[in-house]
Design a binder for these strands. Structure first.
Lengths: 231, 231
DNA sequence: GGATTTCCTAACGCCTTCTTAACACCGTTC
DNA sequence: GAACGGTGTTAAGAAGGCGTTAGGAAATCC
């Protein structure tokens, strides 16, 4: 529930508040990006496409409202405004400029984090792009944990799937025996290089057209294995 | 910009607050619907599909948080909670239950209206998805909490229903044992993987043509379960 | 307060998956 | 060409996960 490393952009010039927010966000497992001016904030938003933005209205270079409307020209990234000004007019103006929420200082960490979760919930709906790996006849949907071959489902056991996706994560590169054993069988001892040969054989039989002459699941003698990407 | 007659549902039992809100909303050109209890509110939401909901937490018949989570079983209609309780815990709980905003009484009319505009902006983005899930012989009406098979109603116990709809919400994806236990039995400890096996068996007997050879309610050995979507 | 439904729990047998071993194959080296 | 290290292949036993049933506890309904 605590967001798996969503990227948050913080636009704030006061060092003290910056530190407070940094600790709060990092403590909840979010990735973190910060800007001290509106210009810098807009630039970082363009470059990194954060999943939410915390914006202080009192910036040195430009009005916070302008930051919001400039951002809204091209993006719907959720913006939570943070401000010392608690007047109703300020809130209305910020919200109408395109902000999604308005929090008046001082505020509690837990409320802030709850409102960040709401913002991520909103943003997540649009950008729900699933990581899908496609190669030749294969289609691997990592979100669904599903492997299709020519559109038909191929059943892989947990170890087979883990081995296959590990090769996919390092697609094209050689993955050493040691590394595969560590990532698939999990650091613990007892994992033998023999396992790799057994499971590579099984994978080839399930996924390769000619298991004895693999086109993609290739052996790198003395080093490890590799998922070939060409063709 | 002031919304051309969007339909707002107000769930509130205090007559005074009702009058205040009615005047505010109608004055801004919104159409208007009101309920005095949680039950009535949920029923009106199902019937009229309002574009936003203003919800008071202090209702006579049921907890406001339950209203939100019941609503979230089938709908993403924006919910703005209005409450006299200003404690941080109250806010966090409501927002995490699925509310989109939290306003503490007393509040200003203009801020309320600004936050309503934000809510309508959010709601407008998403395509109004039907709260009915259809697959092969099944038809699940998430708003009515009703499961039909070949047009005939199938009775599911609360746990069976919760398990089934959890799989539906992640349709096509594998849902891990851990995740299912958390979502169905609620984070609290004590939930054992054994439960899943028992209730999956029951679900298959009620919903599958060949319970011993399930077509849709599939096991992913060592990982979890999945509602298959193909065919 | 009794009846009914729903939930939890234990037991048992089956089936998938993992591990392990044995052997065949290939290229290289001496 | 025989020996050797590394790899591919197959199969069988072991371990653990899963499906299924049933009975009693708990909650709910009337």
């Amino acid at each position: 529930m605590t967001g798996s490393g969503a990227l948050i952009l913080l636009v704030e010039d006061e060092p003290q508040m910056r530190r407070f927010l940094r600790v709060s966000l990092e403590g909840s497992g979010y990735r973190y990006l910060e800007a001290g001016t509106g210009q810098e904030g807009l630039a970082l938003a363009v470059q990194h496409r954060p999943e939410a933005i915390l914006l202080d209205l009192g910036l040195p270079d430009m009005d916070g409202l302008e930051v919001v409307s400039r951002l809204r020209e091209w993006s719907r990234i959720p913006v939570i405004v943070i401000s010392a000004r608690g007047q109703e007019t300020d809130k209305v103006d910020a919200l109408d400029a395109g902000a999604d929420d308005y929090l008046t200082k001082p505020f509690g960490t837990r409320e802030l984090l709850a409102r960040v979760r709401v913002a991520l919930r909103h943003g997540g709906l649009e950008a729900a792009q699933e990581p899908v790996f496609v190669l030749d006849r294969w289609r691997v949907d990592l979100a669904k944990r599903q492997v299709l071959m020519d559109g038909k489902e191929v059943h892989l056991t947990p170890l087979e799937y883990s081995l296959f996706t590990t090769l996919i994560r390092h697609a094209g590169k050689v993955v050493t025996h040691r590394q595969l054993l560590k990532e698939v069988w999990g650091g613990a001892a007892g994992a033998q290089p023999l396992y790799l040969r057994v499971y590579m054989t099984q994978l080839r039989h399930k996924l390769e057209a000619e298991p004895s002459r693999p086109k993609y699941l290739q052996t790198e003698p003395g080093v490890g294995y590799r998922l070939r990407m060409e063709d």
